[in-house]
Design a protein around this nucleic acid. Structure first.
Lengths: 221, 221
DNA sequence: CATACGATCTAATATTCGTTGGAATGATTG
DNA sequence: CAATCATTCCAACGAATATTAGATCGTATG
C-alpha cells in the first residue's frame, strides 16, 4: 500500500498554501494586493518593511501561486492571481475573528475611536446610497477606486479629504470605507468628518468583503 | 501614529490560523476530525505518526482554536470547533487544486485506478438516490456515518464491504464516497466492487464538501 | 555606453518549527 | 494502593524560515 506516500504528497501541496498565509506580512500583502496591483516598493512602504524582505515574501507567495508579477519598465507590479485568493483572505480573517479573543480585543481597541456611529449592513446601505440618502465615499487611493469600488461611491482619498470637504453634500450622513476591517483609513476619515460637524459612519467592509458576500461592485475588473 | 503596531497585531492573529494550517499533518487532522471526533491515538494511526507528535500538533491546532478536546475516561477526544473549520479546509484544498500543478498531477495519479466511472454531480445524484436508481454507500467507519452522512446513503465500511456484498441490490449502479477527494477508501471500494462485476463509481465529495456546497445531509449534528 | 534605479539573488545569522526520547500527569483497573 | 494505559510536558537536536547585508541583473535615461 503506497497510499500513505500519496496522501503525504497531497497534503503537502495544500500545506504550501497554508505556509504562504502563515506570515503576517504576507497576509497584509494579500489584502493590499486585493485592492489592485502594486509595485514591490509600494508594498514595502505600505507594510513598513524593507524592499528586500518584501521581494522575498513575494517570492513565497508567487511559489504558492497566490500572486503573480508583471514587469513594466523598471517596476514589477504584483497582483493576486484571482478573486478566489481575496476570498480566502476574507474567510481566514472571519475565522480568526470568530475564535481568537486576542483579535477581538484588538479590533475593539481599533474601532473605539471618537465620533463613530454603528456600522450598517450591506443591502440596506446599497438602497440608501442609490436613493442618495447617504453619501458613500471611498477613501483609498484613487487607483484602487478605479480598479473596483462600491456602487454609488465617490472617490475622495484620505489624503485629499480635508481639502475636498466641499464636494460632500451638506445635511446628509456620510459612510466611509477603505480596504476592509483591518484598514485604518476609514476610521481616520470618520474622525476628521466628525470634527467638521459632518455625521459620518464607517463601513467595515472593503471591496473584497463586499465581493465575498455576493454583492455587486462597480467598475470591477 | 501607532497604527502600524495595531496592524501588526491584527495580522499576527490571523497568521496564527495560517500557521496552524501550514503543516500537512495538521491539515490531515482537520480533515479526519471533520468526520467526527477522534482520540489522539486514533488520529496518530490514521495519519501514520507517533502519538507524541500527534499530541504536539493537536496542541498547535488547539492554540489556534481550530479544534478542541474533551476527556472521557483515559482518552481525550478531539473535534473541530465548528463547521467553519471544515469549510476552510474545503476552501484551502480547492484553492490548492486550482493553482498547484503538482497537486493536479498527484490527483490524476490517484484517480487513475482501474474500474472507475466518471464522477457524478451533486443534485443529480441526490435525485437518483432518492428514486433508488443508484445505491449510495458510505464506506467510512460506521461512527463517522452516524455523525453525518449523505441523504439516502447506507453505511458499509470498507473493511466489511467484502463480507456484505449481498446487501447491495443487484443490477443497480453503486456510488461510493468516503472522507473527500484526498481519501482513498472510496477508490478501493470501487475497485473491489468492479472486480465483483458490480458497476460502481466514486463520488469525490465527502460530507464536508457536501455541506460546503449547501447540499443537505442526514443525521447531521 | 555609462549611470541610476528597482528588483532579485546569494550568503550568513537568528529564530522558529518538527521531531524524538524520557519523565510526568490523569484516570481506570485489579 | 499499585499497575497500567492514554496523553501531555520537557529538553534537545536538526531542518526550515525570517531577516539582513552585499552583489547582481534588467530596464530606462542621459
Amino acid at each position: 500500500m503506497n497510499g500513505r506516500k500519496l496522501k503525504n504528497l497531497l497534503y503537502e501541496q495544500v500545506a504550501r498554501i497554508g505556509k504562504a498565509v502563515s506570515s503576517p506580512k504576507r497576509l497584509e500583502f494579500i489584502e493590499v494586493l486585493s485592492q489592485g496591483e502594486k509595485s514591490v516598493e509600494q508594498l514595502a512602504v505600505a507594510t513598513d518593511i524593507s524592499v528586500k524582505l518584501a521581494s522575498a515574501h513575494l517570492k513565497g507567495l508567487k511559489a504558492a501561486r497566490l500572486v503573480e508579477g508583471r514587469r513594466e519598465g523598471k517596476n514589477v507590479y504584483y497582483r493576486v492571481v484571482d478573486a478566489q485568493v481575496a476570498e480566502m483572505w476574507v474567510m481566514l480573517r472571519a475565522l480568526a475573528e470568530g475564535r481568537l479573543l486576542e483579535l477581538q480585543a484588538a479590533m475593539k481597541e481599533m474601532v473605539s475611536h471618537p465620533g463613530e456611529l454603528a456600522p450598517m449592513g450591506g443591502k440596506e446601505l446599497l438602497a440608501q446610497a442609490k436613493r442618495g440618502d447617504v453619501i458613500v465615499i471611498d477613501v483609498r487611493p484613487e487607483i484602487e477606486y478605479q480598479t473596483a469600488h462600491l456602487p454609488h461611491a465617490r472617490s475622495i482619498p484620505l489624503a485629499e479629504l480635508k481639502a475636498r470637504l466641499g464636494e460632500i453634500p451638506k445635511g446628509k450622513p456620510v459612510v466611509a470605507y477603505c480596504r476592509g476591517p483591518f484598514c485604518l483609513m476609514a476610521i481616520e476619515a470618520v474622525g476628521l468628518l466628525a470634527k467638521k460637524g459632518i455625521k459620518a459612519a464607517r463601513l467595515e467592509d472593503g471591496v473584497a468583503e463586499w465581493r465575498a458576500r455576493g454583492l455587486p461592485l462597480a467598475n470591477d475588473r
